[in-house]
């Protein structure tokens, strides 16, 4: 199952990547699972996606919790707490 993953702001800079398509391993069906899968890349990945206080997530352009389900074709985004306005 493939999902599109986007990274914004400081998360994008730490990872050196703004978007990618990821083939999820069997059994990964939530944001938490996807995060663990990405953190396993080590280095900046473990760091940028590790601290929940400094990370926000969205599924299909709606804010989402760690426990949110993801399915094939979804757009998942990782970014820091927002600072607009």
């Amino acid at each position: 199952m493939k999902v599109k993953v986007l990274y914004f702001a400081s998360v994008r800079e730490k990872l050196g990547k703004d978007a990618e398509e990821i083939e999820l391993p069997a059994g990964v069906a939530t944001i938490a699972g996807l995060r663990s899968h990405l953190r396993a890349r080590g280095g900046a990945w473990a760091d940028a996606l590790g601290d929940s206080k400094l990370l926000r997530m969205a599924v299909n352009q709606d804010m989402a919790k760690n426990s949110a389900a993801i399915k094939a074709g979804d757009e998942v985004a990782f970014f820091p707490p927002v600072t607009g306005g």
């Binding site: 914004f8 702001a9 400081s10 969205a58 804010m63 985004a77 970014f79 820091p80 927002v82 600072t83 607009g84 306005g85």
Partner: peptide, 10 residues
């Protein structure tokens, strides 16, 4: 807007 809209200032 300040807590929900995805904007980031650098």
């Amino acid at each position: 807007l300040k807590t929900q809209a995805p904007f980031w200032k650098k």
